[in-house]
Amino acid sequence: MENFLSEDTLKSALGVGNDIEFVSCSSEVYDAMMGDWMLDFEVGIPALLESGIKVLIYAGEYDLICNWLGNSNWVDGMKWSGQRKFQAAASVPFVVAGNSKSAGEVNW
């Protein structure tokens, strides 16, 4: 992943410039996010959903800290007007455009 995200052509396409090196765990990003550590941001998400803003709750399958099962549990338990419909929706494969292989699952 680090090699792929460090390719000059990809960085150019993303507009991040060639002087930035991708690392899987940046101490600079980690330090900047310490102010958010162990804070409950779920409390603001229902209001976003109620106002029509689409929200992506993402967790990688192998993410040690933000595991998908924990995220799935709090999303399923979150109170909002679309909760029942969301809970009843089937998970479907998430496929990146141009690729026939599933990159994960998504609930719409």
Rank of each mutant, 00 (worst) to 15 (best):
M1T: 09
M1Q: 08
E2K: 09
F4C: 13
L5P: 00
S6E: 01
E7D: 12
D8A: 13
D8P: 02
D8C: 03
D8Q: 09
L10V: 14
K11V: 03
S12H: 05
S12K: 13
S12A: 12
S12T: 10
L14R: 11
I20R: 14
E21W: 07
F22I: 05
V23I: 15
C25M: 15
S26I: 02
S26D: 12
S26E: 04
S26C: 08
S27G: 07
V29A: 13
D31F: 11
A32W: 06
M34W: 08
M34L: 15
D36M: 14
W37I: 07
F41W: 05
E42D: 10
E42I: 08
G44H: 01
A47K: 14
L49Q: 03
S51I: 00
S51V: 00
I53V: 15
K54E: 11
K54P: 02
V55H: 05
L56H: 13
L56D: 10
I57R: 00
Y58H: 14
A59M: 00
G60P: 01
E61T: 15
D63N: 08
D63E: 07
D63C: 04
L64P: 05
I65A: 10
C66W: 06
C66G: 10
C66F: 13
N67E: 02
L69R: 13
N71F: 06
N71H: 11
N71P: 02
N73C: 11
N73R: 09
W74F: 15
W74R: 15
G77C: 07
M78K: 01
W80Q: 03
W80E: 02
S81L: 02
Q83D: 00
R84L: 15
R84T: 14
K85R: 07
Q87L: 06
Q87M: 05
Q87R: 11
A89L: 06
A89V: 00
A90C: 11
S91W: 15
F94V: 01
F94M: 12
F94A: 10
V95P: 00
V96Y: 14
V96H: 09
N99F: 10
S100K: 11
S102G: 08
G104Y: 08
V106Q: 09
N107K: 15
